[in-house]
Design a protein around this nucleic acid. Sequence first.
RNA 1: GCGAGUGUAGCUCAGCUGGUCUAGAGCACCGGAUUGUGGAUCCGGGUGUCGCGGGUUCGAAUCCCGUCACUCGCCCCA
Length: 415
Amino acid sequence: MAKLQPVRGTHDLLPEEALRHRRVVDVAREFAERYGFAEMATPVFEFTEVFKRTLGDTSDVVTKEMYTFTDRGGESVTLRPEFTAGVVRSFISEGLSQQLPVRFFSYGPLFRYERPQKGRLRQFHQINVECIGIAEPQADVEVLALGHDILSALGIRKDTRLEINSLGDPESRAAYRARLVDYFSGHVGQLSDDSRARLERNPLRILDSKDEGDRKIVAGAPMLADSLNSTSAEFFAAVRRGLDALGVEYVVNQRLVRGLDYYSHTAFEFVTSALGSQGAVMSGGRYDGLVESMGGPSTPGIGWAGGVERLAMLMGDLAAPRRIVALVPIGAAGEAKALVLAHELRGLGVRVDLAASGNISKRMKRADKIGARAAVLLGDDELKKGVGVVRDLASGAQREIALADLARALAAETA
RNA sequence: GCGAGUGUAGCUCAGCUGGUCUAGAGCACCGGAUUGUGGAUCCGGGUGUCGCGGGUUCGAAUCCCGUCACUCGCCCCA
């Protein structure tokens, strides 16, 4: 710590950015509630096992990106790198399988030891929804529609594209995986080093490799759609019909796969080209085998997570609300009156700015700078007449209002 | 984890073939013109360990090495 600086990959959220950040979360929470998703929160850290078991040993998230440490009691704990594992753990430990289905909304910080880039931080935030207990494609459609509505309400749906794919049920996925390994094994010599490693660990990932050589080979690879059994194919078709019926636009991307092992059937991403290589702003999928693999009763689930920082970056500047009232006292009597009036106004819900010092000119300047809507001058003249001079800072118009009515009048005007 | 670029004032940047650089500009900021009135104008003010450490040199913001941070690509993903 040579200089006083934030830890690599972490950021201070100063007011302007915090406002954008909060807007994303508020809108998401509001729409989640409309869809029946109740807000809940799980701890920021869990036993390391929770993430190890669920994310799969092959994912980078588990193998090299977790903040894991031993606490003073000798337990290995990990700062959560994603939401689903914790929510499902909670679902099991709290015995929630008695009240299916459950729909949860969550928001909070996540931690991943990655190389920082724009839109990729070591501490970042996500909004997250999980729908547990519905095996029908209707859940997929609703979860996707919710994401779509949130992006629309934030005014950024037009900057994104929804890509969907189906990984099929476990049987289809296993069959496809076998065909894929078979195919790529015949071209090992032409694959990039990265993809050769993926062939062992996660062959599906070769499909979205950006290496040019890989892409040529991938072009001839068997298609996932051709490996779907009839159940899986019909499931995917039902999801698409549902999206069509709601007017949610999407494109099917057969190369779309997910990094985490627990996904099946529907996989999707809302992507943007506005953020460089960090294109995914919201993504998720169905995880029908997860709850059981964590030791709970066999229960289907689907959900998504959205990157708050990435979503916030897509939004333009937010107009600051001009609802503040600045009190401008002149002289000792005015100061005393202003303090009381400020308290009264705040009690009525009005945002009040009361500068600690400065002459009238300075205080007016400050009122203007913070975007106050009105300034109230309180000097000896006013107090003698029992009024306050209210100046509308946008128009410059001034009028006198009796002190007794001041609080109520300002409260009404700035509501 | 790999490859590359950048790092000078609060912000955006100029300076970088080493020597008027005791380091500049615009914006922002502070004070004043204006001790009862903000936005405009004018006057004045530089607010800086030139990311940090070391090296080369008579002399380094400028060249070299290391390091830290950010950015871009890969990887990964939100």
